[in-house]
Design a protein around this nucleic acid. Structure first.
Length: 488
RNA sequence: CGGGGUGUAGCUCAGCCCGGUUAGAGUGCACGUCUGGGGGGCGUGAGGUCGGAAGUUCGAAUCUUCUCACCCCGACCA
């Protein structure tokens, strides 16, 4: 049978689509631009959620929920914010349908027009800050550290599963602070949490940095970002954390009295990661055989396959492994389907990215071993049944570590520096990847570089090396290199 | 909103130009059977408003007109 996954070399975006489909992560829905996240994909998101939620709570945040709908007038209160989102909003104008008097089904009842139109939230700053006004009176109400798990809608022209969809799932944190310093520290703390999550759980190395003015969130004073490198050597913005200054406090009149009975506007942050992370995970680790999932996010750690099919002696060993592994918290299943052949099962579980496969056959049992295959390297080893539980536990850790190491190696191989524009352009056009280059700090130059090369300023790395240099385009003096790349 | 394209079985598509038996294939699905250490073979079977409407015609998946939906390229966004 022909291979069902297009190779990365042949067509990278087709490869991505094939993985999403063959690993049963998601499918296109009847609604344009919106996907159905299938159980296998949703389980990965749930694992991400569980871990992030734990990290937020450890940092003192609590969850709440705000409305899906935002009155149109709210959105326009912060000038830059409205400009950033106005072009991609879904708008609710009516609240009732009726039968068409001409008999062609349901129509919008023109008499049910809303007095004020409602926007389906593209993000919740406005509704939240309008609410915070009522919650905050005193410095004793601060800091206010709230997170929300929700869906948002941004009416995108071109969509791709997980990476950019019209509706997506995310978390959005919104915090209020008494001082600027504290708010900046909050944004930085979340930035750090995102980076740690990406590396420790997704095994996805990221560059931590600040956005240039041009790439900043609409309404933010400073945007912190984590940027990852995908296998097509394009950058993926994987999570952002914003210091909002007093912009929203002023727009929504959120003031508090400090210890000295002085009235002041509060300082704000907001931050979010979305189901886009699933896309990032796919493109960081997967190969031409299918999905590869880091064990810490895997819906299933181990699949046991009887060879050639279930039989009493095999079932007995499988049952022993199931019990032993489950007791250690390993997520394991026995594929006892009698209708499918072992080869089919191997391919199927590989496509779905199960980190470890254990094959049990008659030949193995004669030697008191089972065959352990790891998804990341495809190595197969015969392991004595006696020590199998410990072996699997260790191997899961090894896989997690190896994936990060491999991804770091890949990023290193595609991290370039450029000191003149010809080199810069040539790197972007040939290898791609991240290019570190001096920049004169102007929005004009940044836009010109984008125009000429399609590469954008991804970020100004945190703790960036300070060195004298000249802007790669204009030759004007510069004090540090920033990261450029073609981006998703 | 421009330019191009596609709608036929769950999915991928052939058939249309040049109208004419009961509309096909692969895959998937169901059942049986032989297999069995990397996506098996054979057999049987279920599955269709041919996107929709109107028209031309003795006769339309096929021709004409209208219409709806979706996809690709661009614009927009990242």
């Amino acid at each position: 049978m022909a291979k069902e996954i297009t190779s990365r070399a042949e067509n990278y975006s087709q490869w991505y689509n094939d993985i999403v489909k063959k690993a049963d992560l998601a499918m296109n829905s009847a609604v344009r631009g919106c996907m159905v996240i299938k159980p296998n994909g949703y389980a990965i998101w749930e694992n991400m959620q569980a871990q992030l939620d734990k990290m937020f709570k450890e940092a003192g945040h609590v969850n709440a929920y705000f409305p899906l709908f935002i009155p149109k007038s709210f959105l326009s209160k912060e000038a830059e914010h409205v400009e950033g989102f106005a072009k991609e909003c879904a708008v609710v104008t009516h609240h009732r349908l009726k039968n068409d008097p001409h008999g062609s089904g349901l129509v919008v009842d023109p008499e049910a027009k809303l007095e004020e139109e409602l926007i389906v939230r593209p993000t919740s700053e406005t509704i939240i800050w309008n609410t915070y006004r009522d919650w905050i009176q005193s410095y004793r109400d601060l800091p206010l550290l709230i997170n929300q798990w929700s869906n948002v809608v941004r009416w995108e022209m071109r969509t791709r599963p997980f990476l950019r969809t019209a509706e997506f799932l995310w978390q959005e944190g919104h915090t209020a602070h008494a001082t600027q310093k504290e708010a900046i520290e909050e944004a930085e703390k979340i930035h750090e949490i995102y980076a740690r999550f990406a590396e420790d759980f997704m095994a996805m190395p990221v560059i931590k940095g600040r956005k240039t003015e041009n790439e900043r969130f609409a309404g933010a004073v400073e945007t912190y970002t984590i940027e990852a490198l995908m296998q097509d050597r394009k950058a993926l913005q994987a999570g952002t954390s914003h210091f909002l200054g007093q912009n929203f406090a002023k727009a929504f009149d959120v003031k508090f009295l400090d210890q000295n009975n002085q009235e002041a506007f509060v300082w704000a942050t907001s931050w979010g990661v979305s189901t886009r992370l699933v896309g990032g995970m796919i493109m960081t680790h997967s190969d031409d055989e299918g999905l590869v999932v880091p064990p810490k996010l895997a819906p299933l750690h181990v699949i046991i396959v009887p060879i050639p099919k279930p039989a009493p002696a095999i079932n007995e060993v499988a049952e022993k492994l199931l019990q032993g592994l489950k007791a250690k918290g390993v997520k394991v299943k026995y594929d006892h389907d009698e209708k499918k052949r072992p080869g089919f099962k191997f391919a199927e579980h590989e496509m779905k990215g199960v980190p470890i496969r254990i094959g049990i056959g008659k030949r193995d049992l004669e030697r008191n071993v089972v065959e352990v295959a790891r998804r990341d390297t495809k190595e197969k080893t015969s392991v004595p049944i006696d020590g199998i539980i410990d072996y699997v536990e260790t191997l899961l850790n090894d896989i997690q570590t190896n994936l990060l190491k491999k991804a770091k190696g890949f990023r290193k191989d595609h991290m370039h520096t450029a000191d003149d524009f010809e080199t810069f352009k040539q790197i972007i056009e040939s290898d791609g990847g991240f290019v570190l280059a001096h920049w004169d700090g102007t929005q004009e130059t940044e836009l010109r570089i984008k125009e000429l090369t399609k590469a954008t300023a991804r970020c100004i790395p945190i703790d960036n090396l300070q060195e004298e240099g000249q802007c790669v385009l204009t030759g004007k003096p510069s004090k540090e290199r920033i990261v450029f790349a073609k981006a998703y």
